[in-house]
Write a protein that binds this DNA or RNA. Structure first.
Lengths: 186, 186
DNA sequence: GTGTCATCTTGTCAATGGCAAGATAGGATT
DNA sequence: AATCCTATCTTGCCATTGACAAGATGACAC
């Protein structure tokens, strides 16, 4: 992979993004070091700046990528709300680096056009899943139901990632999430 | 407040903690700068190290303080689960700096004794509130119910803090939280 | 009055982000 | 084929930061 091409890396942009995902899984998005990424990719310390401007630029790209991947994952989960919730948690755990960046807007440029578009796609996919939830009470409660579903999935995912959950929950996020989400959905 | 006492500040430790809370609300816990805190308190750049060792030490103190405050807030909310959930969200919003540190364990020393104790108190207060939830199905579901309640409150709180919620949710976290939590509790 | 110790300062070093200026290469134009 | 052109990458630099070491100061005990 790391063929030492002289001067021109060939695919530095993607190599840096891949290295960033690795590094974020190790030390978190805030402690990310552009110079470390450059070392991992075998280029000089200033090379990343050309492709992303600054650290916020790189994280903006990752966040947009993340919202896009989340939209895909939710869409693939289909119309079943429970399945969508499990897919949400599964996404957070398997694409941990992306997920952690996505919900830390102080680290990236939240007004980036491509990012905002990807956010819209993810939001739409979320709403599509919630539409199958039997409305309790007035139909105007749809918004609240959507929020409740998003909240419980998001809360479980972040607590899982933070290591805040008791051990007896187990090490299988999908199963544990399904059991918890069922409490709201059924 | 900032009386320029020569050499001995008098209450530097607390002054630094207060400055840290301010700074975290402005730039987040990861971007916290010990030297900035020193400047805010009017002392030299190395003064914080004496009281907290390093940055992780200061954040460990804040996290422990936060779990303690959360335990108090949940206890004060009483036995009503809905009230406890609202108190949880209210805590996250009003004590944002504490809350953000608490759930970022990579920033502090998670094995600190005082911290672990405070975590235990918060956890106990949480469980006490959940005990009032009518168990659905087998009694062994109590754990799942507790997790579900914690997840939905935590998720709503973090989404609120991340600014991820749509504007139509409003600007009153307590009311919005009550509406969402009711979906699970009732 | 003296000693002792917590508190705080000054000085230093390595690492980082970001900027500026320059070097290189690959492709387009002629 | 020769030249230009532009994206890509490098080297060099500076300010900021966290952390450490050594020293200065003053409060308090005796």
């Amino acid at each position: 992979m790391t063929g030492t091409r002289a001067y021109h890396h060939g695919d530095l942009r993607n190599a840096l993004l891949a290295a960033a995902l690795e590094a974020i899984e190790e030390v978190g998005p805030a402690a990310l070091s552009l110079r470390d990424l450059a070392r991992r990719a075998g280029v000089s310390h200033a090379a990343p700046a050309h492709h992303f401007g600054d650290k916020a630029g790189l994280l903006t790209t990752l966040a947009a990528q993340g919202f896009d991947l989340l939209a895909q994952a939710l869409t693939a989960a289909g119309d079943d709300l429970l399945a969508a919730g499990v897919a949400y948690v599964d996404f957070a755990v398997r694409r941990r680096a992306h997920f952690e960046v996505m919900f830390r807007p102080e680290l990236y440029r939240a007004d980036d056009a491509e990012l905002v578009n990807a956010q819209g796609r993810a939001r739409a996919a979320l709403r599509a899943g919630v539409a199958t939830l039997p409305t309790r009470g007035a139909p105007a409660d749809a918004d609240r139901d959507a929020l409740a579903a998003w909240s419980i999935a998001h809360g479980f995912a972040t607590l899982w990632l933070a290591g805040a959950l008791p051990e007896r929950v187990g090490d299988e996020p999908r199963e544990a999430a399904r059991a918890v989400l069922r409490r709201l959905v059924t």
